[in-house]
Write a protein that binds this DNA or RNA. Structure first.
Lengths: 203, 203
DNA sequence: ACCATGAGTGAGTGTACAGTCACTCATATG
DNA sequence: CATATGAGTGACTGTACACTCACTCATGGT
């Protein structure tokens, strides 16, 4: 494949996108560079020309993941209908829920968490959560407790999606998944569907 | 090692304990059966006599992990000073925070989450969360929303420990870790130290 | 004393994977 | 045309790992 030649600088982000998909599927250790290469429709030898190591490739994918998460939170701020701190946080939650509906960005974060012991990956993960937390805090103006709860319910959201219990009929699963939107939402309104998706209705 | 002969039935739980430690360190794919064997001070060949496969060994470790989690929640119920649903949930949170102070049981769950795509592991993980959720719900009598928040803050607790930001001085880290106890707590009172460790002070 | 049982191991086997290297060939420019 | 540049690959290497097998030997029963 790759009939048309492109420059390395053009190709790199495409490989990152392929890496996100591949690593999201089977994690850092469970995914081979050949898997990523196949997803990107290039040879694995060329992946190593574009990235120095599997580790750096994963870090690149994770950084790109958080770029998109922060961007998504920004959209949440812009489309907030209720301009109070909690309203903004809620809108951010809605935007985030929409972003991770395809599960790749979500699973990548879960898998990254399981690879923290790799120093570069641990650092990238802390960098990502730092960006998200600071962005949520400064752009919403909410209290630390509200921001903490925002992240806590984000983590719950990751758990529910990982377990695949979004639409289970079992009672325990329904308890955990309550208010967390199904992936098959109507893609229309970014801000409106937010509701209580990531923790509005606690207390 | 293993100078003294023991029966396979006696040895198996020891190997499970070693597996918890080893898998907690580097995850399902990052840990070799030889690592577990070394931790248990036996040969890897014998590990395969005691367990049919690496996968089943991991599942055994995960099941044992949730045995201990549920047992710990039970202690929380028994030592609750405030017998209201929220008081019991809070005491469960304290007991859980104490249990996972050594991080092995916590990291095993994180790593299990990253191995959900292995069918048997995914099933074991769902089984575990089912047990925990149902136990917390029925034994506390709390509302579904309170139970959901309990689990959400448990997940936040996992994140904080995974990132190793328990006692970071950075502001974003302090926001996430607020109220989550340091590992170096005073081991005396199981129930009393609970406080707001896993989500008492939200709202 | 003898043997049956089962605990425990050393030395493999086959395979999969990260990373390398020598190479091909498409394009651009003089 | 000639040749330089860089995109892209096939074939390889060395190593690590899940799992197997043939074996040793300690113990308890008769």
């Amino acid at each position: 494949m790759a009939i048309k030649l492109s420059t390395a600088e053009e190709r790199r982000p495409l490989v990152i996108a392929a890496a996100i998909t591949a690593f999201a599927r089977t994690g850092y250790r469970g995914t081979t560079v050949a898997d990523v290469a196949a997803e990107a429709r290039i040879s694995s030898a060329y992946v190593f020309k574009l990235f120095p190591s599997k580790e750096q490739l994963f870090v690149g994918a994770l950084d790109a993941c958080y770029d998109r998460v922060v961007e998504s939170l920004g959209h949440g701020v812009e489309h907030a209908t209720n301009p109070t701190p909690d309203g903004i946080l809620d809108s951010m939650g809605g935007a985030y829920a929409e972003l991770i509906a395809d599960r790749d960005l979500l699973m990548l974060q879960v898998h990254a968490q399981s690879a923290v012991e790799v120093p570069e990956i641990g650092a990238a993960l802390r960098r990502g959560y730092r960006r998200v937390t600071e962005f949520a805090s400064t752009r919403s103006g909410a209290t630390d407790a509200a921001v903490q709860r925002f992240i806590a319910f984000g983590q719950l959201c990751h758990l529910v999606a990982t377990l695949g219990i979004d639409d289970s009929s079992e009672a325990w699963a329904a308890t955990l998944a309550a208010g967390i939107r199904h992936p098959d939402f109507t893609a229309a309104a970014p801000g409106s569907a937010a509701g209580s998706s990531t923790g509005g209705n606690a207390a």
